[in-house]
Simulated scan of single mutants.
Amino acid sequence: MKVVAVGGGTGLSTLLRGLKNFDCNLTAVVTITDEGGSSGILREELNVPPPGDIRNNLVALASSENILSAVLNYRFENGSLAGHTVGNILLAALTKMTGSFTEAISKVSDILAIKGKVLPVSLKMARLLAIFEDGEEICGETNIVEYCKSSRKRIRKLTLENPVEINPEVEHAIVESDAIIFGPGSLYTSIIANFVVDGFSNAVKKSKALKIYVSNIMTQPGETEGYTLKDHVYEIERYLGTNLNYIIHSLPPESNVLERYAQKSSYPVKIDIDDTRLVVGHFSRVLYETEHRIRHDSFAVANAIFNLLTSKIENIDKAQSEVTM
């Protein structure tokens, strides 16, 4: 079974840690518009594509997340390298040495013996451009996120400052896939940021794959403040230009962590969809990452996805069998 997972950093890497345990041909498609932190600095100073999200997902797909994986994720805390991770620097160095970001990713993939493949959505660098409901135009991922938080305005249209074309390898993977999974992750800056690359939505429409959206558990301050599940799905389908087959939504765990989220204007995404596409369950847990956070349970979400895929395949096989009888 050929499975393509589309997203950005933390959300996609969480999903991949679960998916790699199942028998499938897995391809992760990662956005190339990250401008924050270490990725933003390396992008600006070395003129290389942002490596951070790629690194996260390479480590997530590593056959064994051992000391080498930990080293690649190690972030320097002081000195001239403060804020940079070893993996980001390695990817930037390999890009300069080989002259190819794709080749750099391939070499790190071999080092980690990853289960699957990680591909940038485009072979060219790009910057996001958001047009807000007040008409304001903001360029750059970091600037867009900050404007969302400060203005409390919704994004009316997301596009790229200058158009870039889809990575041909990504296009082939999408068209030939059996399932395409979107999310979880920041709705606009991690997920839809892939859709606005030229050729992406057309590739999805060409594909006969099942299209599955793994929704966010909580709203994101600024970017999706006040968004319900229907709002999330509407935006995904609007930019894709096609309908989703399934929507997987996780209920948040009962925890006092929810109170801390509320202090930051982040609340559980309200379920306001009632149709056969919706799969709701407890696919989340509380993890400690400098502070307690609600995250998807990697294996639980992946298991829910493969239960859907297996059921669909069994129904197709049954129908074909009845036709030939």
Rank of each mutant, 00 (worst) to 15 (best):
L119I: 06
A319M: 11
G79L: 12
K312Y: 12
P252D: 02
V279H: 00
L42M: 10
E259K: 13
S284I: 13
E314C: 04
D274P: 01
R156E: 14
R75F: 06
S266K: 05
E35N: 12
N167S: 08
S250C: 09
S63W: 04
I181W: 03
E289H: 08
Y74T: 02
L308E: 00
N307M: 10
V71G: 04
F200Y: 06
P49H: 11
S207G: 08
A93G: 07
L26A: 04
V257W: 04
K318I: 12
E146S: 15
E137N: 07
N307V: 05
V4T: 01
I89W: 02
M325S: 14
V170W: 06
E77H: 04
G9Q: 06
D34Y: 05
V6P: 01
A300R: 15
A62P: 13
L58E: 08
I191Y: 04
F182H: 07
S190P: 03
A113H: 09
S255P: 07
A60T: 07
A209G: 02
R154V: 05
D297C: 12
S284V: 08
N21P: 00
K107G: 00
V30D: 06
D34G: 08
T310Q: 11
E45C: 03
V48K: 01
A70L: 06
I191M: 09
F306S: 05
K230C: 01
S177L: 12
V29Q: 04
A70Q: 14
L251S: 09
E225Q: 07
G222Y: 06
T276D: 15
I305D: 00
M97S: 09
D231W: 08
I166Q: 07
T242D: 00
Q320F: 13
V71Y: 09
N307W: 01
L68M: 14
I271C: 01
V323M: 12
E225M: 09
K270I: 15
R277M: 02
E235A: 13
L158M: 10
L58I: 13
E165Q: 11
V280Y: 04
L210I: 08
Y239L: 13
S38L: 05
I247V: 15
S38G: 10
S311Q: 12
A130K: 01
L258R: 05
N315P: 00
V175T: 13
K211C: 02
D317V: 15
G37K: 08
I41H: 06
E291I: 00
T142E: 14
L278D: 06
V4L: 04
V197I: 15
M325E: 11
E322Q: 14
L128N: 08
N216D: 07
C24N: 13
D23I: 02
K117F: 03
E136A: 15
R238A: 14
V145H: 02
L240P: 06
R152L: 12
R154S: 14
K208I: 01
A173D: 03
K312F: 11
L61M: 15
K107A: 05
F132Y: 07
N143T: 00
V30K: 05
A304K: 05
N56H: 11
T324N: 07
P50H: 04
R154P: 02
L210T: 07
